[in-house]
C-alpha cells in the first residue's frame, strides 16, 4: 500500500512538473508552424556540408519543437530544397537544441549541470557528424520516400498549389503532430479541403486571426497526443521505481555498459517527448550512471518508436536504418566515454 502511494505520488509529480513544459513546447511549435516562413530560411542556408550540418543542428533554436514536430519541419526543409546536411542536422538536433528543452533539462538537472551541457554538446556533435556523413550522398533523392521525392521536385519547380494526388501528403509538412507510415494515401484524401487550405502558403494567405485559430487547434491536438504519451512515460518511470527491487536497478544502473544499454532501450521504447524527457531521466538519476542519463537524453530525441514511424514517412527504410545505427553507435560511444573518464 505504501508502495502504491509512493508510485502514485511519483507519477503525479512527474506529470505536474512536465505538463507546463509540454504546454510551452506545443504552444511554440504551433505558433511557429503558422507564423514563420521557413522558405526564407532555406534561401540563406550554407552549402558547405560541415558548416551546413552545424547550422542545421542549430536551427532548432529558432524552431523549439520536440521530436514530433521536427520531422514535419525537416520534411518541409527537404521539400523546399534545403541542403541534405542542413536537413539531417536539423532532424537530429532540433528536438534537443532549443530553448524550451534546455530550460526543462536545466530545471531537472540543476544539481548536475554537467549533464545539461553534455546533452547539448553531444547532440550537436552527433547531429553535425551524421549530417556531414549524409551530405556525401550527392542527391538525397534515393533515400526519400517516393511521395516526398515527387513533391520535392515539384517544390523546386514552383509553389505547390494544384490539388493532385502527389500533393495529398503535403499537409503533413505543415502539421506538427504525429503521423504514421503508410497513411499517405487514402486517409489524407478524405481531408482535401483542410489540406488545400493548409497547403496554400499559410503565412501569406491566412489572416492573423485564422492563423491564430489554426495554431490553437494544433496546440490542443498536440497536447492531447503528446500528453497521452507523457502519461505512459510517467507511469513506466513510477512503476520501475517502486516495483523493481533496488538491488536489481542498482546492479543494472551502476554497470558502466549495462546502464547505457538499458537507458537507450528505454529511450527508444518510452518515446517520451524531448521537452519533458529530462524529468523522466531525473527519476533514474540516483541509481543510474551519469553516462547512461546522457545516453537517454541525447538518443531519445533522435530516435524512438514513435519517431521511427514519423521518419518512415520521409525516408526509406534503409536511410532510417543508417540514421538509427549511426545515432545509436555515437550516443553509446560518447556515453561510454562519460562513464569511463568523466562520471
Amino acid at each position: 500500500m505504501v508502495q502504491l502511494n509512493t508510485g502514485f505520488t511519483l507519477f503525479l509529480s512527474l506529470l505536474v512538473e512536465a505538463v507546463p513544459f509540454l504546454l510551452i513546447g506545443v504552444a511554440f511549435s504551433s505558433l511557429l508552424l503558422f507564423f514563420v516562413d521557413d522558405r526564407q530560411l532555406v534561401g540563406i542556408l550554407p552549402k558547405n556540408p560541415l558548416f551546413g550540418a552545424l547550422v542545421g543542428s542549430l536551427i532548432g533554436v529558432l524552431f523549439p519543437v520536440c521530436e514530433c514536430g521536427n520531422v514535419p519541419v525537416a520534411r518541409r526543409l527537404i521539400v523546399q530544397g534545403a541542403p541534405t546536411a542542413v536537413s539531417i542536422g536539423f532532424l537530429l538536433a532540433a528536438p534537443t537544441i532549443n530553448p524550451v528543452v534546455f530550460w526543462a533539462t536545466w530545471v531537472a538537472f540543476k544539481g548536475q549541470p554537467e549533464i545539461v551541457f553534455m546533452r547539448v554538446g553531444f547532440t550537436l556533435l552527433i547531429a553535425t557528424t551524421i549530417g556531414w556523413v549524409f551530405s556525401h550522398q550527392a542527391d538525397i533523392g534515393p533515400f526519400l520516400q517516393e511521395s516526398v521525392e515527387r513533391s520535392r521536385f515539384r517544390g523546386r519547380g514552383g509553389e505547390t498549389s494544384a490539388a493532385s494526388p502527389a500533393e495529398t501528403d503535403t499537409p503533413a509538412l505543415l502539421q506538427g503532430g504525429t503521423f504514421l507510415a503508410g497513411e499517405l494515401g487514402g486517409s489524407f484524401q478524405l481531408d482535401t479541403p483542410v489540406a488545400q487550405r493548409l497547403v496554400a502558403n499559410p503565412v501569406i494567405e491566412q489572416s492573423v486571426a485564422s492563423k491564430f485559430e489554426l495554431a490553437l487547434e494544433n496546440m490542443v491536438r498536440e497536447l492531447r497526443e503528446l500528453g497521452a504519451v507523457l502519461v505512459f512515460g510517467s507511469a513506466i518511470a513510477a512503476t520501475v521505481q517502486v516495483a523493481i527491487p533496488r538491488e536489481t536497478i542498482l546492479s543494472l544502473g551502476q554497470g558502466v555498459v549495462s546502464s547505457i544499454v538499458a537507458m537507450m532501450v528505454l529511450a527508444a521504447v518510452v518515446s517520451i517527448c524531448s521537452t519533458v524527457d529530462s524529468f523522466f531521466a531525473l527519476s533514474f538519476a540516483a541509481t543510474f550512471t551519469s553516462g547512461s542519463l546522457v545516453a537517454f537524453l541525447i538518443f531519445g530525441p533522435m530516435i524512438d518508436l514513435k519517431n521511427i514511424g514519423l521518419l518512415l514517412t520521409v525516408f526509406k527504410g534503409r536511410a532510417v536504418f543508417y540514421l538509427f545505427g549511426l545515432a545509436a553507435l555515437m550516443s553509446f560511444a560518447l556515453s561510454l566515454f562519460v562513464n569511463l573518464y568523466i562520471g
Binding site: L12, L180, E183, L190, P193, E225, A228
Partner: peptide
Amino acid sequence: SASADSAHVTLLPGNLSSAILLTVAIFG
C-alpha cells in the same frame, strides 16, 4: 465537412488519447 483530423494519423487514436488524459486527471 466532418473531416476532423482524419488527416492526422497518430500513434494513439485521438479518442483514446483524450480518454487517457481525462482518466488520469480524474484520478489526480
